[in-house]
Amino acid sequence: MEFLIELLISAMIVVGGVFALVGSFGLSKLPDLMARLHAPTKATTLGIGGMLIASILYFAFIERTLSVHELLITIFLFLVAPVTAYLVAKTHLHKNRDRQDTAQFQLPPPAGTHKAGWATFNKSEKQSRTEIR
């Protein structure tokens, strides 16, 4: 039993390390920022998640103390990763808004028939109304 738990903890640490490494490798290898964004948000977050789970198991079964801080860190990182990715993508689009004629920055139009733009470039009706006021 002891051996199985040690094996599980070691496997979690190794898998976490590999995923963190793959995430950073993607960050340094992929060609442009939007593609690079995929690697840290997914691979690195899951890598850290695996290590934190290993840490919970280690302290629960080997040190015999219950520690729930790791769970808080895991939940926090998983909730925060999409927000970071969204903000970075938004900043990237905003900075390159003058280069929309190049293929890399060409955005598809929003769905629907009537006129609407993307929130980064166009103000919504509500916003422009409050500004006039």
Binding site: M34, L37, H38, T41, K42, T45, F78, A81, P82, A85, Y86, A89, K90, L93, P110, A111, G112, H114, A116, G117, W118, A119, T120, N122, K123, S124, E125
Partner: peptide, 16 residues
């Protein structure tokens, strides 16, 4: 953002 190879990066002004 968290699932297969996709990152959501913006929403349209009408929220649709």
């Amino acid at each position: 953002t968290m699932t297969p190879g996709t990152v959501s990066s913006d929403i349209s002004t009408d929220g649709k």
